[in-house]
Amino acid sequence: MCNDFSSILTVVIPTLDEEQSIALVIDDLKQQGFNNILVVDGNSRDRTREIAGGLGARVVLQEGKGKADAIRTAIPYIETPYLLVMDGDYTYPAKHIKELLDKAVKENLDEVIGARIRGRENIPLMNRLGNWVITKTFNILFGTNLSDVCSGMYLLRTQRTREINFESKGFSVEVEIAAHIASTTRRIGEVPIEYRKRIGKPKLRKRHGALIMLDAYKLALRYNPVFLVFMTASLILIPSLALTAYVAYDLLVNNVKHHVWAIIAVTGTGIGIQSTLMAIMTLYLKRLEYRLVQRLEEVKR
């Protein structure tokens, strides 16, 4: 018989038409001793709510649409110090939850992400590529070293979760939560987990990857706007270098001089180089700020 974690952890499962998998998810959780289960249903048109309620889970109707609204709906119902969000499609094994909880408690973390290291073949190739790009971009913008910021299984300290505004929509919520923790307490980590093949129809589409990237940009604009301004300005370096190469080629090969284009190319290259250096400097200063905040937190403890 497994231990009962009901007083420590609430498992939040956002659902939408998951009647094929929700029973397997709840049974898997109960076998691991997780009985405090909150299903936030986004007005499913199948029997998801009936099945979940029949298996002892608490079921509430979601306010609004999308995953972010599902988590926002769940927060007032949570009375435990930790909550864990996981998808209702049976892709995330409940056996890993104890590992996430142990790491959060032992290392005093506010978020622990279940990084999908094993079973990545069950993630569509385009989704894998998009996740890699988003995670790398996130690490650059927020000074982290995560490997799967888009994972659908993550453990949170309830107190910190209540501080989040949840301005993003849908699948961008994972990035917003991680951005908040990475920009405030910095107490964020991850645990490698297995990812199983999805049961039922997938809800993540190709367009969601672009929307998540856009939301990540918006979050970075909120948490580190100076870096984004200089980074955007540095993009002028690409056409300026191309123009410089064209002017130089025409001069050396055809002995044709482009005085105006040469001035534009040199000016653009100079602006691009300066903007790049300033972007690097602001990124360094932001990371220095993160380290100082972390040291102050350690002193307070």
Rank of each mutant, 00 (worst) to 15 (best):
S151K: 07
I51Q: 06
G272D: 10
D87L: 04
D41V: 04
R301N: 13
L252W: 14
K197M: 14
Q20E: 13
C2K: 08
E297D: 10
T161S: 08
V247F: 11
K65A: 11
R207K: 15
T161P: 00
H208A: 05
G56R: 03
K106H: 12
T80F: 02
I117G: 03
Y249T: 14
M278G: 03
D215K: 00
L55H: 08
T276I: 08
R291D: 10
A248I: 15
H208M: 07
I75C: 06
E297V: 10
N139Q: 08
T48G: 06
L237F: 12
Y290N: 15
D46W: 04
K95P: 00
A242D: 11
L228Q: 12
A233L: 15
T267I: 13
I181M: 03
H96V: 09
G209P: 05
L109Y: 00
E174F: 07
L241R: 08
D28N: 08
E174R: 05
A265S: 15
G270P: 05
K30E: 15
I78P: 04
D87W: 08
Q20A: 07
P124D: 02
M126L: 13
Y249Q: 04
E99N: 11
T73W: 01
M1A: 14
A104W: 00
L237N: 05
E167V: 12
E297T: 08
R196L: 15
K95D: 00
H258G: 09
K203F: 09
K95L: 04
A179D: 01
I164C: 10
P14I: 02
I193S: 14
L285F: 15
M126S: 03
D28V: 03
N255W: 14
L252G: 03
A94W: 04
A216V: 05
L129E: 10
R116Y: 01
Y92F: 13
G54H: 09
E167Q: 14
K30R: 13
T91A: 06
T137R: 09
T232M: 13
Q31I: 02
D28C: 01
A178D: 07
L219R: 02
N108H: 11
T10G: 01
V229W: 09
I271R: 02
P239E: 06
L125H: 11
P192Q: 14
T269L: 10
Y195D: 12
L235V: 03
K257D: 07
K218D: 00
L221V: 06
D28I: 04
S168W: 11
M153P: 11
Y246A: 03
L251N: 12
V11C: 09
Y217E: 05
